[in-house]
């Protein structure tokens, strides 16, 4: 058994883990956990696609 450690009032363990997030994930069913991961992937890939389709801002352009 892993020894119990102190969790701060803000919900972080001594090693910096957000225990509230751990407890929330454990409250979900495995199917719901996979859906959370799928939504993360969809979000990251949509951002990546957007950044690829848009040209980078011209750093020489003056700000009005």
């Amino acid at each position: 058994m892993v020894p119990t450690e102190e969790v701060s009032e803000r919900g972080y363990s001594e090693d910096g883990v957000d225990v509230t997030l751990v407890r929330w994930m454990l409250s979900l069913t495995p199917a719901e956990r996979l859906e959370v991961l799928q939504q993360f992937a969809d979000f990251v890939l949509s951002i990546r696609a957007t950044s690829i389709s848009q040209p980078p801002a011209d750093p020489k352009r003056s700000l009005d």
Partner: peptide
């Protein structure tokens, strides 16, 4: 993730 860990991949 399926075992309940809040990580991303």
């Amino acid at each position: 993730v399926l075992r309940g860990a809040p990580v991303n991949t």
